[in-house]
Design a protein around this nucleic acid. Structure first.
Lengths: 135, 135
DNA sequence: TGGAGAAAGAAAGTAGTTTTCAATTATAGC
DNA sequence: GCTATAATTGAAAACTACTTTCTTTCTCCA
């Protein structure tokens, strides 16, 4: 079953596997990228009395565990995604959707002497194919 | 005088040149990158009774006018900077400072068919020279 | 330099997020 | 499977960041 995977994922980071967390991960996987509001609205369909505080707490717990990551959106609310291979993001300013795009093989970065890079993030804004072809 | 420049800058975007806005621009220039709190604390030294609402309103006004821009910080508060030539950012996770770095000449991006890029942002995290050499 | 319109300041209001605490639940060990 | 323990949940209150409203003051063009 699907949730076995997420249970294993949670346990691998010493987090308890609760139905609420499993549902959140399932939603994140289905959406690809979702913000707090989207997650809360979706999960309420299953757990009618879930608290928004639980959603926030689990987001923070899973962020700290490195299970999910935050994507800061230009002039918008943060979205979250399950951590996977390193990639870049395309943000469509028309439909507000986020798309994963391959991360450039080599970012030709010119860092000043002594600067030690750890991670690089690329965010491209523009218009996606669906919006552009006027669908 | 210094403020003449900022007055011209504000007027070029049809914004009135007020002492508060001039001070904010001066602070932004001096800091390079500053968050709301830093701006507010600095400007209070000059305008003891300035309202935080004024700072927010001016930030938003100048953002909309394209005079300044927001930099979203991984796990941190947004910083603001005066708009200048396109560049990338380096965020030192040790001292929390932002550094401007040259934007890669050519970002080797692989966008799906039909996607039209408009802007690209690169954020590099790591440790800056000052922190790395243990200064 | 007078007046229209914009901006400032103060205070109240809103949104988003975190904390607290009692009750419940997951899981490791038996 | 059952139990103990520690973590998680939900509800409410609290907190922080930001915006709105309203009145007063300021900018700047005629």
């Amino acid at each position: 079953m699907q949730s076995e995977r997420f249970t294993a994922l949670l346990r691998s980071r010493e987090l308890k596997s609760t139905p609420q967390r499993l549902a959140m991960l399932e939603i994140l996987e289905r959406y690809g990228h979702a913000d707090i509001e989207e997650i809360y609205n979706e999960i309420k369909e299953i757990f009618i009395s879930i608290s928004l505080a639980t959603v926030y707490k689990n987001i923070n717990t899973m962020l700290e565990a490195g299970l999910i990551q935050e994507i800061k959106i230009p002039n918008g609310k943060s979205k979250f995604e399950i951590v996977k291979e390193h990639h870049s993001h395309f943000f469509c300013t028309q439909c507000n959707r986020i798309y994963d795009i391959p991360h450039p093989q080599r970012l030709p970065l010119l860092l000043p002497d002594g600067f030690v890079p750890k991670e690089s993030m690329v965010m491209v804004t523009g218009v996606c194919a669906t919006c552009h072809t006027g669908a």
